[in-house]
Design a protein around this nucleic acid. Sequence first.
DNA 1: TTCATAGATGACCGGTCGGTCAACATGAAG
DNA 2: CTTCATGTTGACCGACCGGTCATCTATGAA
Lengths: 202, 202
Amino acid sequence: MNIEHDTRTRILSTARELFHGRSYADVGIKEICDLAKVQKGSFYHFFPSKQDLAMAVIDDMADEWAHGFVAEAFDQNLPPLERLDYMIDAAYYWQKAAKDIEGRMPGCLFGNLALEISTRDDVLRAKLNAVFDKASRRFHQALDQAVELGEIPPLDSEATAAAMLAFLEGIILLAKTRNDPEVVRILGPAIKTLRIELAHPN
Amino acid sequence: MNIEHDTRTRILSTARELFHGRSYADVGIKEICDLAKVQKGSFYHFFPSKQDLAMAVIDDMADEWAHGFVAEAFDQNLPPLERLDYMIDAAYYWQKAAKDIEGRMPGCLFGNLALEISTRDDVLRAKLNAVFDKASRRFHQALDQAVELGEIPPLDSEATAAAMLAFLEGIILLAKTRNDPEVVRILGPAIKTLRIELAHPN
DNA sequence: TTCATAGATGACCGGTCGGTCAACATGAAG
DNA sequence: CTTCATGTTGACCGACCGGTCATCTATGAA
């Protein structure tokens, strides 16, 4: 059962690596096929178009994220605020490892794709938005629990969660532009200082 | 003197609009020439390559920024912390205006270009990095002045400045992915809560 | 009047892009 | 053995890409 989908899987992971390391537009289908050792006709047997491939890549990456280090970072057994540190650390080590191997910081695949194609392709934009929404909910939950435990004063946890996600994407963007993962490590801890207060109920 | 450079200026501003509204890779030289009413040969008379055009576009935009609303926002007569609000407001209104006209949020040209091409073109990456550095210095100065005036407790103003710039880019990224400028308005004010403490001198 | 220079013109180039297609291999079900 | 679905192969397509170039025009200095 996995043999017959082995080709598809190879295409998917190759495309993910290439898109992440360079960009959507810069990676051609021929290049993906060559690296994945797949014929072009086979590619189009599994993916009707490059756009469909991108959709699948986003799903694939989001799944691996959700079950990988994001699941670890937002482990319910971890104190809520430590989850934020964990997330920053994970981002730092990942980017650093990638740079040590390939010489350049790839940044966040979702952020990269979002800025590159969300003005051109509304379907992909919506999909990326959903990924960010899901990520934001993790922060949201952690913040609610931190408030409940009295670790931080009450705040607008939904808005603050979104702000934290934005900050995470922002420091990765800056670090990628500097091609220096240390930016993530140095600026990252400030994520816990972000606060959006509850609107006064007047 | 401006007549003989009129063609060049038209190419530049057309390219800036198109790159900003879509992406670097998605906009071809032919399209730029058609819209700017310039022949292809003329284009290559002024710009040796597409990369050179991109360099010029970044310079052009950075100049207009520096002398435009960034100069207003970081007006030395404004209280330091108000400058941050001004900057957020300016970003919000700009993105909102663009969306109202074109139907979609273009985001930040520098952020867009940084994520799209900084892994492929180190020269452009370095140029974008310099733009961010310069922007960061504005925040840095404002923070130093705020500390001096006693408006905020002492902090690592350089690191905090970078964090604020990252946050600004991050909320614009998130807003673009949602295609909703309101994200900037809602999350933006949290920029003033960001803090990175001074390292203990042990 | 000559000459040099800056700029404009548009046909043209090789290469690559995303995508198509008819032919063929394989293996399980009837 | 036949049938059918799933998957593979690689040649092929038109469109478009960034970039080149010989040729022409306009201007202004000598």
